[in-house]
Structure formats: C-alpha cells, structure tokens
C-alpha cells in the first residue's frame, strides 16, 4: 500500500543528503575497527553505511537500492540498456580519502569482495563499465569511482563501486593502496547489497 506524500520534496531531499533540516537525525559513526564496521546510523532512519577510518586511506561504503540506482542513471539520460545493466548489480556509494601525509595510489582491479561462502568476487571497475556501455554510446562517465587514481594528502573522491552478487549479500571488502612503494591492505566487513523496498 502506497502512502500519499504528506511532506515536501525539499524536506525529503534535505533529509536524504544530511542538509540542515535533517541534522537532528542520528549521526553516523566516524570510525570503525580494522576489519569490522557497523551500519553507521539507526537502521530505521538511515541508509546503512560502513567505514574503515583506521588508516591514512579511508573507505566508506553506502548501501544503495536498485531503484535508486535506476533513477539516478535514468535522470542522467543514460540509455535504457545501460541503466538496466547497472541496476542489475550491487552498487555502493563510495567515498575515499587520503588523510595521510604522502600520496596514495589505488587500483580497484586489485580489490576483492569476499562473501560468507568464502568466494572472492572482483569489482566491476569503471574501465569495465565503459567497455560494457560503449555499444550504448557512452564514452565518458563521472559516476563510477575512478579505477585507478593517485590522491595527494587531503584529496578525496566519490563514486559508485559495483560488483555482481545477489541482492542482500553481505560481504567483506578487501582493499589495498600504495603509499610511495609500500603496499597496504585493509578490510571492511559488513557491507550488504541493497534491495528494492517491498510494496
């Protein structure tokens, strides 16, 4: 059963993106243990998110619903085939930050998601999406997290990370980055792929 809209869209938008109208809501946790993080806010009012802030390279994943992803790309004017392709997979809003004192480089192709059955899943990189979307006429995209990048101290970036696992799957993200020549590894446990709301 659908409810009528009783409050303005602007309020909802404010609530969605943490604008002042929603500031009284439960704040997200700022940090998490090395390999286990918890949903950042009360589940009843927030999109679940998971973060690892223990290292110079911080990673935060935010659960997105397939419907939200579909709406985003439709509104961006992407062709239906391209929209359908990305709405089929698991998508997280992702924020990364270099909070250290030296440049940091990463390569999403080296990252893995490990599911409870022990299987490792590669992430679908931006490079892969551009190849998949090329037949649909998409030659450029700014929504997917850059596949490789060097972040100077203070730099940060956002974008979608995607992988092909079933709705509702819980996983541990194993990710890596380089600080100069040194390779670092960390884990982010708990992210769960979003599902569409039940009617």
């Amino acid at each position: 059963m659908r409810r009528n809209v009783s409050i303005g869209t602007s309020f909802l938008l404010a609530a969605l993106c943490g604008l002042p109208a929603a500031r009284a809501a439960t704040p997200a946790s700022a940090s998490a243990p090395d390999q286990a993080s918890t949903p950042a806010a009360a589940a009843s009012v927030a999109q679940p998110s998971w973060a690892n802030h223990r290292h110079a390279f911080t990673v935060r994943l935010i659960q997105l619903s397939p419907e939200g992803v579909r709406g985003f790309y439709e509104n961006m004017g992407y062709p239906q085939a391209a929209v359908a392709a990305i709405a089929r997979v698991c998508v997280f809003g992702t924020s990364i930050h270099n909070r250290g004192k030296v440049p940091i480089s990463y390569d999403v192709a080296d990252w893995r998601a490990v599911t409870s059955d022990g299987r490792q899943h590669v992430l679908i990189t931006k490079t892969s999406w551009l190849a998949r979307w090329k037949p649909d006429g998409i030659g450029s995209d700014w929504s997917i997290l850059p596949a490789q990048q060097t972040l100077q101290p203070g730099d940060w970036a956002q974008g979608f990370t995607t992988l092909d696992v079933p709705r509702g799957t819980r996983l541990t993200l194993h990710y890596s980055w380089r600080e100069y020549g040194t390779l670092h590894y960390a884990r982010l446990a708990g992210p769960q792929c979003g599902s569409d709301a039940q009617p």
Binding site: C17, G18, I62, Q63, S65, G68, G71, G93
Partner: peptide
Amino acid sequence: ERRRLLTSLAACGLGALAS
C-alpha cells in the same frame, strides 16, 4: 519529482561527505 528524488538518493550515496 520521482526522478529528482531518486537521483538525489543515489547522489546522496555519492555525496554523503559533502558537508
């Protein structure tokens, strides 16, 4: 309206640290 809202939902995932 629906599209705008849904876009913002996804964008929120992209931009949750935008304060």
